[in-house]
């Protein structure tokens, strides 16, 4: 198994290399001259040329690429044009809120959706099941920002239980940190919850009709063991797949999410960097996002091998 994991890790390197090449040239060939934008609206041609030289943009593209790749291999993503700070440091500063929000959303979604889906399948076509599925349709149809404003209105404005928006770093106390995450996580998580609950139910229903579940029941096993071990482990592959897709969507969605909830994370950093054409930062961010997705994909793939012994590795 360890050998398999190491092998899969190495297999991600070419993917990351392709992403890196793509990112570099995409930015270079995008319309608009970064030097002109950076130099300002009224800048003379001379001033623009100077900026270009300072940024190294006057050199041949391949040479720029060689320098950039060498730095990248050393973990150096370059220097921000505007703040003159290393891109790695900028990203590291903004990583915590994004990571915290993504993980807490995921936790809210998975921790509720999987048990709900299991119960719905177990009580298929009974009242609980109908309620759960009704909620799932509603949750899936509800736009995040509508739900967010409803939640903020009641929990923050009317009842004053939770902060309206903003982010409290974990370093400034655990409870304020958790409180700042609750509303955004729930608002964001409901869609995924609905999706994961539906898949869990469907996958469980299929498994519960299998012969080996009849065998488990013929052994008089306790209901929770039949449901949570015999059935859920067999139903897990599609569920885990959807959770993986959910994570990928969450990562792509941080730009919007962080704007809605006023959270100073990577999403906001991205917006700022794009508007200012701070292309070293943009490059760095795209690489980080792509890397995160490749990693999620890898973890999901590896989890298949743990869940189903028939999957060869």
């Amino acid at each position: 198994m360890t050998a398999y994991i190491v092998r899969r890790l190495f297999a991600t390197l070419p993917v990351m290399a392709v992403v890196a090449i793509f990112v570099f040239f995409l930015i270079r060939f995008a319309p608009g001259d970064p030097a002109a934008i950076i130099a300002g609206e009224d800048a003379t041609a001379e001033a623009i040329a100077q900026v270009r030289m300072k940024l190294g943009l006057d050199r041949p593209v391949l040479e720029q690429f060689a320098i950039w790749s060498l730095q990248l291999l050393q973990g150096d993503l370059g220097i921000s044009i505007f703040s003159n700070l290393p891109v790695t440091r900028l990203i590291a500063q903004r990583l915590e809120p994004t990571l915290a929000l993504t993980l807490s959303t995921l936790f809210v979604a998975v921790a509720l959706a999987v048990p709900i889906g299991v119960v719905a399948a177990w009580k298929a076509r009974k009242l609980v099941d109908r309620l759960v599925m009704g909620f799932a349709v509603l949750g899936f149809a509800m736009p995040v920002f509508v739900l967010a404003y409803i939640l903020i209105y009641f929990f923050a404005v009317q009842w004053r239980l939770l902060p309206v928006q903003g982010y409290a770093p974990i370093g400034e106390g655990f409870w304020p940190f958790v409180e700042s995450l609750i509303l955004p996580s729930v608002a964001l998580g409901v869609t995924y919850m609905a999706l994961i609950a539906r898949i869990t139910r469907a996958s469980m229903l299929e498994v519960l009709a299998q012969d080996y579940i009849r065998t488990a029941n013929s052994k008089g096993l306790a209901t929770d063991r039949v449901l949570l071990l015999h059935a859920l482990k067999n139903a897990a592959v599609p569920i885990v797949t959807v959770i993986g897709i959910g994570i990928a969507l969450l990562i792509s969605g941080v730009v919007i999410t962080e704007t809605v909830f006023n959270i100073p994370g990577l999403g906001r950093l991205t917006v700022d960097a794009v508007l200012k054409r701070d292309y070293p930062v943009v490059q760095g961010l795209i690489l980080v996002f792509a890397g995160a997705k490749v990693l999620v994909n890898l973890v999901i793939d590896i989890s298949y091998a743990f869940l189903d012994p028939r999957i060869r590795y």
């Binding site: 012969d211 080996y212 065998t215 013929s218 071990l229 067999n234 189903d308």
Partner: peptide, 15 residues
């Protein structure tokens, strides 16, 4: 206790 006709499907594949 009971045993069934289908030995290929009566045992749980992941345990």
């Amino acid at each position: 206790s009971m045993i069934f006709q289908e030995p290929m499907t009566s045992l749980n594949p992941v345990l």
